[in-house]
Computed example of a mutant assay.
Amino acid sequence: MSDPSEQPRNSSKLSPAQRLEAPNTRLIDASIATINDMETLRACIAYENQHQQRVPILRQLEKRANELRSQEDND
């Protein structure tokens, strides 16, 4: 049986639009923080680059990518 505190690899079925078009920045921050796989992260980066190109959001996505890479290195 798995530990319920472990986060699943694919954190949710939210689309990049649902993650990045939230009505306030705290929800966007939370959406980015819950990305647990590089595939979802890449999709969000591509979506942001295609649509709004908000530098602060792209920086947050880059930071999350670095965190995920670090976690992968430690596994």
Rank of each mutant, 00 (worst) to 15 (best):
N36V: 01
N66S: 03
D37L: 01
Y47F: 12
D29M: 15
D3K: 10
D37N: 10
N10M: 13
N24K: 07
I32W: 01
L58A: 02
T40R: 02
L14D: 05
D29A: 13
N66W: 01
L61Y: 04
E67M: 00
A43H: 07
E72D: 14
D75Q: 10
R26L: 15
E21I: 03
L68W: 02
A33K: 10
A65R: 14
T34I: 12
R19A: 09
A43Y: 04
R59Q: 10
N74Y: 02
I32D: 01
L68M: 03
R59F: 13
I35F: 06
P23N: 08
N24H: 08
L58Q: 02
H51V: 15
R19Y: 06
R26Y: 08
A17T: 04
A65L: 02
I45E: 12
A17H: 05
R59W: 15
Q71T: 00
I57L: 12
R9S: 04
D75G: 12
S5W: 08
A33C: 06
Q52I: 10
Q71I: 00
L27Y: 05
E6D: 09
I45R: 13
E72C: 04
K13L: 11
K63N: 06
N10I: 09
Q71C: 00
Y47K: 01
L14A: 08
E67L: 00
N24Q: 14
P4Q: 07
K13R: 10
Q53P: 02
R54P: 03
I57T: 13
D29H: 09
A33V: 01
R69M: 07
S31C: 13
I35N: 04
A17W: 04
S70Y: 01
R26W: 08
N10V: 14
P16T: 06
L58W: 01
Q50L: 11
M38R: 14
R19P: 05
L61C: 03
Q7D: 13
R69K: 14
A22N: 05
R42C: 06
I57F: 07
H51K: 12
T40E: 12
S2E: 09
P4Y: 06
N10F: 14
R54M: 12
P8I: 04
Y47E: 09
N49H: 07
N36G: 09
L20N: 03
T34F: 07
Q18I: 10
N49S: 09
Q52D: 15
L41Q: 08
P56V: 08
L27W: 02
E21A: 10
H51M: 10
Q53R: 13
K63T: 06
E48G: 02
C44H: 00
A43D: 09
I35W: 04
I28P: 01
Q53D: 12
